[in-house]
Each structure stands twice: as C-alpha cells, then as structure tokens.
C-alpha cells in the first residue's frame, strides 16, 4: 500500500507545532498502525531526519499508552480498539491519513504525538482507591458480592486510562474516565465507606485540572477502546449530588 501521512510535529511543550507530510510506500495490510509508524521512522532515520515521537508500549490494547488521533477520531476508524490494535487493512491504498496528538488543555503536548496525561494520575491519587493498608484485609470470601455488581464493577474497571474519551469529547471532558473509577468502587461493598468522600474529591480534582464539562454527546463511549458506558457518568452525577447533600464537609 501507498499512503500519504500528515503528521503533527512539535519539538517540545513550548514550541509551536505544524503538520508534516510524508509519503510512504510498501505498507502491508497486515501491519498494525504503529508498525506502519515504525516503518516510517526507520525511513526517516535512514534519511538522516528525526523520527516521529509517539507513545506506545504493550501493543496489545491493554496498557493504554498509545494515543493517536487519526482522521478526526481517537484510535482511528474502528470501534472498541486502541491505535496499536488498528491494522492497515482498515485503510485503502492511496489514502491520506491525518494524525494528531490528543488535544486538551490538561494534556499538553510533550513532543510530536506524545502528550502528558499525568492529570489522570492526580485524579486517581485524589480518591480513586480504597483506603486499605496491606495486611488490613479480612478473608476474601467474607463479604459476598452479587455477581451482577461484580460484573458491573469489572466493566467500569476495564478502563485503560488512555484518554480517548477526553480526546473525542468536543469539550475535552474527562468524565468518562473519572466516572469509570468511581463507578467500579461504588458497585462494590469495599468502596462504600469512602463513597462520598471519593465523589467529592475526584470531581474537585477533575475540575482543578481544567477538563471541560460533559454535555452528553456520548462521543466518549463511542470512541472508548474498552466501550465503557456513559451510564457511569450518570452514576457519577448521582454520586456527586448524593455526596453534596449528605456529606458533612
């Protein structure tokens, strides 16, 4: 396959970026999108140019590192997968592909297609946990959890923290990410003691990071590689309202 790539290049956080166009030939439909970038980078290195920096690690769709905005969609045109799981057979010979980094105020570009997603870490640090020190735990089977609740918790916990929800949202809102963690813990008995505190703290941190507000376009759900449901956002709204009304803070 022969392709034209328009890729965002940006030296560093402060620099002004611009698109750079590359022609690339000899692409196999069996390659993953990132392998296509490997080929391009190899070519750039051989030509004495600087390769394109992009984030990637596990290349099997679970670590959440890869993050390309491809032809106007996070992780490209297919549903329920990450960029590393996207294969070139999803494109046509001769296509022009535009690749941009995730764009959001709280996700500043570090270089080229690499962005800083540490805002997500800070949100988790604000309350996305159960406060249980090692050794505190009772026997694992001492608290039964309804299978339905465990399944719901799991579905929410499947979030890989890639940030596609923020990237897809026209408001750069992080509510799908935040609500997924809140929902996981709200569905489990272990998460109950800190439920209100968690809701208040995580929302406060999310707002502080400067993410936009949710306007329920549901683009996040449509683009989430793990198909996390927006019903989690509704749950978060409930949690937050409940916490505001009931909490002593």
């Amino acid at each position: 396959m022969k392709l034209t790539l328009k890729v965002w290049r940006q030296k560093n956080r402060e620099a002004k970026g611009a698109f750079e166009t590359h022609q690339i030939d000899g692409i196999s439909p069996d390659m993953s999108f990132l392998e296509m970038f490997d080929v391009l980078n190899e070519k750039l290195i051989n030509e004495g140019k600087e390769p394109i920096a992009f984030d990637h690690d596990c290349r099997e769709g679970i670590c959440g590192t890869c993050s390309m905005f491809i032809n106007g969609r996070p992780h490209g045109p297919k549903r329920g997968i990450t960029t590393c799981q996207l294969h070139m057979r999803s494109f046509q010979d001769g296509d022009t592909i535009v690749v941009e980094p995730w764009r959001a105020g709280p996700f500043p570009v570090i270089k080229d297609l690499v962005v800083d997603r540490s805002a997500f870490d800070r949100i988790i640090a604000s309350g996305g946990f159960v406060s249980v020190n090692t050794g505190n735990a009772q026997d694992a089977n001492s608290i039964p959890v309804a299978k339905e609740d465990a399944d719901d918790a799991f579905d929410a916990a499947a979030c890989i923290g890639c940030g596609a929800c923020v990237a897809a949202c026209k408001n750069a809102s992080a509510m799908l990410f935040v609500s997924a963690k809140m929902s996981q813990l709200a569905h489990l008995p272990q998460g109950q003691p800190e439920r209100r505190r968690r809701a208040l703290a995580m929302v406060a941190q999310m707002d502080k990071e400067g993410f936009g507000n949710c306007t329920n376009t549901y683009a996040c759900e449509a683009e989430c590689p793990k198909l996390i449901s927006v019903s989690n956002i509704a749950l978060m709204n409930r949690e937050y309202l409940g916490a505001t009304v009931k909490s002593d803070e």
């Binding site: 106007g72 535009v98 941009e100 764009r103 026209k170 408001n171 993410f211 507000n213 376009t217 683009e223």
Partner: peptide, 29 residues
C-alpha cells in the same frame, strides 16, 4: 459552559469526525 468547554481545548484539531461518534444536535447545543 460552552465557552468554558471551548477553553478546555486551547489548540483545536485540524480534522474532526464528530458524526462518527455523536449526533449532530448533541454537538451543536
């Protein structure tokens, strides 16, 4: 809110394909 939300993405995308993931009305409230 719409104004604030715009500010959450100071650098816009060059290409977006909103119709692939959401209905037109939802993006143009």
């Amino acid at each position: 809110l719409a104004w604030q939300n715009r500010r959450a993405r100071p650098v816009r995308y060059a290409v977006t394909n909103g119709k692939a993931n959401s209905i037109w009305a939802s993006r143009n409230m």
